[in-house]
Design a protein around this nucleic acid. Structure first.
Lengths: 291, 291
DNA sequence: CCAAACTTGTATCGAATATTACAAATTCTA
DNA sequence: TAGAATTTGTAATATTCGATACAAGTTTGG
């Protein structure tokens, strides 16, 4: 059964002016406005109750009581959804209360991440990657390098020329020296353990590469040289959390995959085959890498 | 204004049997049940409408209409909360709709993680770690090794003798051969890229170490040799997600920290000092590791 | 610009609802 | 166990609500 809200949205065009007023009043305070009397809804909408009734019947409902019953049903359904249950209401006794205490603040972090990352910046990065640049070089800090590596490994499944530079000034310095135009450099730079990332960013910028910096809200100095900056909240009590960053990484991978459709799919298939071939080989003499 | 639900909960004790029936019926389907007529609520509760009315007035409300108005108010308030807005309804225009689409399914994953990890197993692992075993050895698979490393790095801040074995049968095989009793081995083992983790687990078990396996729901074969198994959901459409695993890792670290209070805090301070000393050293000749 | 079609609000009626009074049933107290 | 107090349901009542008929107003099409 489609929600009344959706039904109204889709029928808005074919409504008469007065009916539209009712629809707006209902949607503005959905579903509360519909749970009071038809007269009160008419009043807040600035029309009369017959208009409300007419709208309801035109929606295919038998009458106002049925309309309200549907609304109540929707409320019931929604409050039974697992997401809602976690937000409000009594904790499921089958749930690990202690663990849940760790999850709650992290969920807030996700909220903030979503409203913090500008859609435009995110899209630009994804478009950039989906265009398959000549090189994608990824670096990170003491902790964040692990997320960087995860990004590198997963991106590598979708587009070519991805590599991780664990030590930009050590054994991986060659990768940075070889940078050409059309290259993309992604730098993870978070507080606490500040880093030489500023130099990495500057150097990359001078090579003509597109510089992407993923950092926390107190923008790192490396953001100055960046073409794209993705801010991610990481602060928590008492420990910081990389949840936001993790989701961002996964989102980048998934969005890039969607935008490369055919070629990305193709590469993933090749990748899988290679893995299997490798396993067949590795299994016989001595076991090696895994999950 | 306190929610009616809370008011009912706190007054449950002082209610008469019939009123309690009404209260239960209302809470069982809150707030829907209260938004229909008093008679219908009475019917589902198995009593009469006067009883419903009496309960309502005893709650301090003037009458049933006022009671319903309060319920509608609560609905309005809740649907205006930022959390709810993110879940359902129109997306906040300031929000990145595309990114949000990636966050939503991952939040469900967190739900499932919380209800999937048994509290007892989690607690046992934390107690084990907080007791500061002689050695904590951590291994992971192709992707999950990055989460394993994150766990190792962060645990190392809190308790001694933590190390990561990237290649249990390669350069890190010594670490496994040196295993003694009182050691703890944590193995990340997820599907897709199955691994030699079974052998690692077996070997560790034979050395007398406590074996902890963190895996997805289709329990890996290594779970057979494990003393503690922490199942984590990772399945997603179309890509898997490590969000659940990430939160679990952070939860393990944080819970362990809480249980080691003094000694953990002390170690963290030493740690910080070392980092600063290292930075002071590294900054002068040539930059190195970072954020 | 006129007439037909369509909207919309007022007034009215019947039905459903909340509310109250009262009596039966139950529980508590001595 | 007897009486009092409390709880609970039945029945009657007054109010509100949804629904409908109808007329005034508006828009549309020729």
């Amino acid at each position: 059964m489609t929600p009344i809200k959706a039904e109204i949205h889709s029928r808005m065009d074919g409504m008469t002016p007065a009916e539209r007023k009712v629809a707006r009043a209902l949607l503005a305070n959905y579903p509360s406005a519909g749970l009071a009397s038809a007269a009160s809804l008419a009043k807040t909408a600035g029309t009369s109750s017959p208009t409300v009734l007419r709208l309801v019947t035109r929606l295919g409902l038998a009458g106002y009581p049925e309309f309200q019953a549907r609304l109540r049903e929707e409320i019931t359904l929604e409050s039974r959804s697992p997401v809602h249950r976690a937000e409000h209401g009594e904790p499921d006794p089958a749930i690990n209360a202690e663990l849940n205490a760790f999850v709650l603040p992290r969920r807030e972090l996700l909220e903030r991440m979503v409203s913090m990352v500008p859609a435009s910046e995110f899209d630009r990065l994804v478009k950039l990657l989906a265009a398959q640049p000549r090189a994608v070089l990824i670096s990170g800090g003491y902790y964040s390098v692990n997320l960087a590596e995860l990004l590198a490994l997963q991106l590598d499944q979708i587009i070519p020329n991805v590599s991780l530079a664990r030590e930009p000034f050590g054994r991986d310095s060659g990768k940075y020296l070889d940078l050409k135009k059309n290259a993309v450099v992604i730098i993870f730079d978070f507080r606490r353990h500040e880093m030489a990332s500023t130099k990495v960013a500057q150097q990359a910028k001078q090579s003509g590469a597109t510089v992407v910096v993923i950092t926390d809200q107190e923008l790192s100095p490396s953001a100055a040289d960046a073409d794209i900056v993705l801010p991610v909240p990481v602060d928590g009590i008492p420990f910081d959390s990389f949840i936001g960053l993790m989701v961002l990484v996964e989102a980048i991978v998934e969005a890039t995959f969607r935008q490369t459709r055919d070629s990305g799919l193709k590469r993933m298939k090749n990748w899988e085959e290679n893995i299997h071939a490798y396993r067949a080989f590795a299994a016989t003499p001595h076991p090696e890498e895994e999950s």
